[in-house]
């Protein structure tokens, strides 16, 4: 019986398998994106000890100092200074915390709620689904910036209020996409079999549906980080983002906009940071998606 004879090498003990697969996973991690993300995380966590200057120290005598490779550049301000003479390099390092933690909080809060709503909406169907979807459409139809303006004027400008106002918009985007995926997964036979077995609904959602929509969630989350950093910058530009003088990358890009021709470094370096962060997160997300998929994972 060709069907029953499995081609199996000598059965390795579980821990051998685990160590071996752990090593191979580590070997396949995308090196550059992971390194970039690690550096950014170190900046975000230990920034205050790494940054050579205070990110908010104003030095008007030294404003618009160019980066070190220009003739007038000094080693003290590696990447130059902005219009108030604040050190760009230090602000970038400290800004990593604001930009990344803002995105993380919004992804965790909005994404978490959105995934839950999407799963329930897609799985339950019927009236509940219709009600939830209309609610999501209402949120998606609202102009983010305008709503944020009103909200921030009402509750005051702070890091927390930016998180609170961006989360529902993110939740709506997650809910919509997760619902669509859930609709297709719930029709698969293994879900029907789970119902036949009598598996409780919460367990069907967590063990059968969620793992099969996880790819989408990972990809969406990594994409949304970039989107959120940009949104934060728009809000900052309008004066309702993270309150200055806290450094945030988006805010820095906005600050330098009017000096683009004379002092490009104020805008360029935070822009590059956003690019590096978003690109690395996307590449890392791709790898994570492949690693989480048993079909693509080769031991």
């Amino acid at each position: 019986m060709a069907d029953t004879s499995m081609q199996i090498a000598a059965p390795a003990s579980p821990w051998v398998v685990r160590v071996r697969s752990g090593l191979s996973v580590a070997r396949r991690v995308p090196k550059i994106p992971t390194a970039v993300l690690l550096v950014l995380m170190i900046f975000a966590i230990f920034g205050q000890w790494i940054a050579p200057h205070s990110p908010v120290a104003v030095d008007m005598a030294n404003s618009f100092a160019p980066p070190v490779w220009h003739e007038e550049g000094t080693a003290s301000n590696l990447l130059g200074t902005d219009k108030l003479g604040r050190d760009i390099f230090s602000r970038l390092i400290r800004g990593a915390r604001v930009s990344l933690s803002l995105s993380l909080f919004v992804i965790a809060l909005g994404g978490g709620v959105g995934v839950a709503v999407g799963l329930i909406s897609g799985y339950a169907g019927g009236k509940l689904d219709a009600v939830l979807q209309r609610g999501i459409e209402v949120i998606l139809a609202m102009p983010t910036i305008l709503v944020a303006l009103v909200f921030v004027f009402a509750v005051g400008r702070s890091f927390e209020s930016v998180i609170l106002i961006l989360s529902p918009f993110l939740a709506a985007r997650f809910a919509r996409i997760v619902r669509g995926e859930t609709l297709s997964v719930r029709e698969r036979d293994f879900v029907a079999i789970a119902k036949v077995i009598g598996t409780p609904t919460w367990m069907i959602l967590l063990r059968h549906i969620l793992p099969n929509v996880f790819n989408t969630i990972i990809v969406l989350a990594t994409l949304e980080v970039g989107h959120l950093i940009l949104l934060e910058s728009s809000l900052s530009f309008l004066g309702v983002g993270v309150p200055p003088p806290q450094p945030a990358w988006g805010l820095m890009v906005a600050d330098g906009r009017e000096f683009l021709t004379s002092a490009y470094w104020i805008t360029l370096f935070p822009g590059l940071c956003i690019l590096a962060a978003v690109l690395s997160l996307n590449l890392f997300g791709d790898w994570l998606r492949d690693t989480l998929d048993p079909r693509r994972r080769q031991l």
């Binding site: 698969r188 036979d189 293994f190 029907a192 079999i193 036949v196 077995i197 009598g198 063990r207 059968h208 793992p211 099969n212 996880f214 998929d293 048993p294 079909r295």
Partner: peptide, 20 residues
């Protein structure tokens, strides 16, 4: 009843959760 009555479906590719 859900213990005593079980099922095997046609498509063995759809009836096993690929993530488990």
């Amino acid at each position: 009843y859900k213990r005593l009555v079980q099922a095997v479906f046609q498509d063995p590719y759809s009836s096993l959760n690929p993530r488990m």
